[in-house]
């Protein structure tokens, strides 16, 4: 009986360990996906700034 009890306790510990490792990985993955999204958003913003600069140039050239 104590042997089974030990085995059960050991399995629970193993279960915890496996789950924690997966949870930590998922958390890291989530951060990486967010980083990608932010980088992509930054690229889009950069292009928007280019557009604003171009629009400004057009307006300036019209005033001349």
């Amino acid at each position: 009986m104590p042997d089974t009890n030990n085995q059960a306790q050991s399995l629970l510990n193993e279960f915890k360990e496996i789950n924690l490792k997966a949870k930590n990985y998922l958390s890291e993955l989530d951060k990486k996906i967010i980083q990608f999204d932010l980088k992509y958003a930054q690229q889009l913003v950069k292009h928007d700034i280019n557009m604003l600069k171009a629009a400004k140039n057009i307006l300036k050239s019209k005033r001349k």
Binding site: H47, D48, N50, M51, A54, A55, N57, I58
Partner: peptide, 13 residues
């Protein structure tokens, strides 16, 4: 379309 609008055609009034 977005690249064309924002960059390639951006100076084409």
């Amino acid at each position: 379309g977005r690249i064309a609008r924002n960059e390639i055609l951006a100076n084409d009034t």
